[in-house]
Amino acid sequence: MSELTITLLRLGYLVLLWLFVLAAIGVLRRDLYGTKIVNRRLRRAERTVSPAVTAPPPAPGRPGPIPRREVNPRRLVVTAGPLRGTTLPLSTSAILIGRAPSCTLVLDDDYSSSRHARVFPQDGDWWVEDLGSTNGTFLGRERVTEPTPVRPGTQIRVGQSTLELQR
């Protein structure tokens, strides 16, 4: 083998090696799975613009369609406290709220207990249950002593945070 072939093979192999490394990193870059951060202000701006473009305003004299009332709330939103703005989608499983890292919603809040409260679905309703917390869970102004059904829009207070079920 000539010296040139050897050099070409040597450098060609290094190129192949780095090609693989860069391909793997390229997959990683595309593969940053998990959660997507959506800026609310941007989305709201889009929403105010888009109806004007897509849907014509309802004809005068005819009332717009009555929004269909959905029975089930679809998300749990933190409306006040350090995590304000956090949204959890509601599925069929219960949501555990507290300071322990194992909770679904982890509060970094000295006023909440490690396993503070649980929000769970039963018989088509969502219920809130206090798990023996030190400072209590409040539904509106009432302290939760037993599993209580929650209506969308009612405020649930856990430590320094306020949560709300929304459609």
């Binding site: 693989f20 391909a23 793997a24 951060i37």
Partner: peptide, 23 residues
């Protein structure tokens, strides 16, 4: 203010096959 929404994950098995060929 930002909200956190779950992201759709692709299984990525074909990507794996392509990388495997290179490896």
């Amino acid at each position: 203010m930002a909200t956190v929404a779950p992201h759709r994950v692709r299984p990525g098995r074909s990507v794996e096959l392509g990388l495997l060929a290179l490896a």
